[in-house]
Design a protein around this nucleic acid. Structure first.
Lengths: 196, 196, 196, 196
DNA sequence: TATGAATGAGGATTCATTCAT
DNA sequence: GATGAATGAATCCTCATTCAT
């Protein structure tokens, strides 16, 4: 049992070693040899813990995502106003402290749409579900206090569209806008779904 | 002069040969040798027309995108109702006839977020600009007839958020929803920005 | 007949175009494509005038060597003192105006000892013969005025050893000494074969 | 520690496999595939021990040069007469037993003047220094017994010129003279620097 | 005579993976 | 469990050369 825990620790350790390299290089420049060196272990050892490279990147992404989530959930908790909570939910990723996370998430998206790895697809589905549920609660709470601009809208549909929009903003933030513009525009967007 | 035209034709021809392979394989399984065979030309010939593999995929993507755009613009033209035009703009990509386009676009997104190729970044920027301008016209026209649910919203911000949402829907259509659900949800989303 | 002359002119023209590239790149970076571009002719045309790349470099080397020879012969002619003539014969190559020549000669030596091209071997043999004869005359003349330190030495042997030494100086000038040191040392060397 | 020794042994082993091929082919015909085959190892293995092809040839040259040096130093030691020692120093390379060495040294010179490899330049510099120091000792000893023909000459300059001459003889031995002529002429040359 | 598009053999190099220690 | 030397398939890309125009 403790062996399993150790195995898990080592997995994390290896995956995190991968982070430094991935921040500097594109994924297909990440080599097992390089990774082994960075993690101070033998090349063969990596295969004791991972099936392949994508697995490692998935593990890294999961770790970073969990870290990111904990961080933002905590912050969102502290905020009392629900509309502001929602804004935080969509914009905290653009804070400087998440620069690395953003870069890795970007590369992970690259893999997601290049490979056909099932674990990755699974991760994406879970990401959606989690965000959906979390945002749904926020929206419901917020709509009790603030009136949504559209009274008739189905909450599920609204939540869904917000998540889609959030994803779109994230993706385009790498190409068409600056970070601060993105944050600003997201806030405007959130305001636009509420009555004045 | 005619040589340049021919050169361009050949570029297209080679890029299109790439399509068949790309539909079946992931990008890093697309080899120059395979492509040369498919295009019935020598490996060296490919390098007369393209700098590298990414260039070819970019050309293919551009070709398909232009074809897609012509197609949908034509259809949107025929539609009289502006809200419907917008719906078409966001949903036509999910029609069966664009199945291949969707698959290639997906792979292209994979490259976009994996590589640091400047031409690809340029393509993304142009994609955004074009869509922004096109959609802006539609929104303006539509808001004259149909009243937007949010009277005060800045049109640019609205257009921007719709494009972001459109992109988000597209990306998640590969993982979380069926094509028909996606289309349905997009229509609901568009309706939600108008008064009843 | 005039066709032959033209053919020769073109050969020279192509070979000279090769110079610019060769000064910047190592020989195996010199490509026919690059050369054709520089010479403003078609790739195929080059094969009308040359058998292969080594042939072109040989032609270039020959051209430069002839130019160099004319130049130094002229200068040596002007000098009256025979010991000084000999010094000029060995040191003029290190003048700034022959920088390019030196670089090309160096690359040519690289080819000489890498390939087994017969024309190149022939060129080397002729180079030796010519220099031998030319230097022999100088030595003879000089020994009539200045007394050689070694009275008994066979002139042929002396000439031979000087040419060998000259070659050695040239080769090591690329690695172990500065140009000015080389020139200085050569002069000392020449002085050493004469009585004070 | 013993790993380092083994690594070095393997390097030598690979480099020596290169010898056989190099004796038959020119350098740019020496392929990694061929070399791997000859050395009975995988192509990839070569890259565990060497950076590139030039590195391998440098290693081979170094090995052969060390072997050659040991050999001649031993022989020179046995000779008592210092003038004869010097003659041996300049002529032993032309003995039949060094036929292979000579051929490889020739090819190495080809690389030296074709490439811009720093390690190779370093090798050349060291070669000069070593020979200079070694020959200087011989000259000094010899000049105590035999009187140099030129009493005033600076020993350093004399040594330098002899090395240059030695190099020149070596280079021209591939083109203008037979081995035996070369040996003969070198001996004459050495005699010429001494009084009768 | 001149061309330059087309070629494809060929080579360097990479790197995930294995397996004996 | 850990290792890292050995591997060789796989791939990109080059470039001399040809030949139809």
């Amino acid at each position: 049992m403790s062996s399993l825990i150790n195995k898990n620790k080592k997995r994390k350790c290896i995956a995190l070693s991968c982070k430094k390299i991935l921040l500097e290089e594109r994924i297909n420049k990440l080599t097992i040899a390089q990774l082994a060196k960075e993690a101070n272990i033998g090349k063969g050892t990596i295969y004791e813990y991972f099936e392949n490279k994508e697995d490692i990147v998935l593990e890294l992404n999961t770790l970073l995502y969990e870290n990111y989530r904990e961080n933002i959930y905590e912050k969102i908790e502290k905020e009392k106003d629900y509309r502001e909570k929602i804004k935080l939910f969509l914009t905290l990723i653009y804070e400087d402290k998440f620069n690395c996370h953003r870069k890795i998430f970007k590369k992970f998206i690259g893999i997601t749409y290049s490979s056909e790895n099932n674990s990755i697809i699974e991760f994406q589905r879970n990401w959606y579900k989690e965000n959906f549920e979390y945002l749904k609660v926020l929206i419901k709470e917020s709509s009790e206090n603030k009136r949504l601009i559209n009274n008739d809208i189905n909450v599920d549909e609204l939540v869904d569209s917000i998540i889609n929009t959030m994803l779109g903003f994230f993706l385009l933030s790498f190409f068409t806008k600056s970070i601060s513009e993105t944050q600003h525009d997201i806030k405007k967007y959130i305001n636009s779904i509420y009555k004045k």
